[in-house]
């Protein structure tokens, strides 16, 4: 479904991503784990067109999207929930969701009902300004907003960031549910333990290149990973 081949990304002179290749197959949950600054967010931003790779190619459902503008990718079935949620803080919950369906205005009504069913807490806050929501609610809103475009593949950047353990569990349950209902998922996480539990496959990123890859199970049992990312 999504194939990234040998991309190299630079921030000015700094070579941030080195020959990254990864693949996400239809129906999979693929996790991208690694320390701060390893290049996880940069990888997602490059896939979604906010950054450009100098070399290499990105293919979404057999179409080369390496040079496609970010705003055109939404209607091709790619949705990206950015790190730090980036909900529209001054708009209401309802308006945020409407923005999610910007490319498919016909889906506004049905989409919002769907999101409210999945995230009942948002329903109660429908007319509230997003800036007044709690961190967990904002994360739910960001995910709900991304679902409004009916994506085939959903990229989530650090959905657990800054959330309490109970909320993290809730968010991961929702990710699992989404996957079971047919959404392919590319998940970036620092919480490697949680990510590896739900991932079919995972890649470990270190200083801008892929160090290891394997099934979630394999990586969770690997000594190297346990030492570096799972606390021993």
């Amino acid at each position: 479904m999504l194939k990234v081949e040998n991309i190299n990304v630079y921030y000015g002179q700094i070579h941030t991503l080195r020959d990254i290749s990864l693949e996400v197959k239809k129906g999979e949950v693929v996790a991208l784990i690694g320390a701060n600054g390893a290049g996880k967010t940069t990888t997602l931003r490059t896939i979604s067109g906010l950054l450009r790779s100098k070399t290499g190619s990105i293919t979404l459902m057999d179409e080369n999207i390496s040079h496609t503008d970010a705003h055109k990718l939404v209607s091709k079935g790619l949705a990206h929930v950015p790190e730090g949620r980036h909900v529209f803080l001054q708009m209401t919950v309802q308006e945020n969701l409407e923005m999610g369906a910007y490319t498919v205005p016909s889906n506004v009504k049905a989409g919002i009902e769907d999101v409210f069913e999945r995230f009942p807490r948002l329903k109660h806050r429908k007319n509230q300004i997003a800036g007044t929501l709690s961190g967990g609610e904002q994360q739910m809103l960001a995910m709900g907003r991304a679902l409004m475009s009916k994506p085939k593949i959903l990229m989530l950047d650090e959905p657990s960031m800054g959330l309490s353990p109970i909320l993290v569990q809730q968010i991961f349950d929702i990710i699992k549910e989404l996957n079971e209902s047919g959404t392919t998922i590319l998940l970036v996480e620092q919480n490697a333990e949680m990510a590896l539990q739900i991932a079919h496959r995972a890649y470990v990123l270190e200083s801008g290149h892929i160090k290891l890859s394997g099934t979630g199970q394999e990586l969770a049992n690997s000594d190297e990973i346990r030492k570096a990312y799972l606390g021993g």
Binding site: S48, G49, L50, D69, A70, H71, K72, L73, V74, S75, A79, H80, P82, H86, V87, F88, L89, Q90, M91, E95, E98, M99, G100, Y102, T103, P105, R145, A146, S149
Partner: peptide, 24 residues
């Protein structure tokens, strides 16, 4: 209006607006 709300979205957060499919 959809375009008007899109304008508000762009004014708040260009990257997020772009990710919604709005041509900034």
């Amino acid at each position: 209006t959809r375009i008007g709300k899109g304008m508000r979205a762009v004014s708040e957060d260009k990257d997020a607006a772009e990710l919604m499919g709005i041509n900034v």
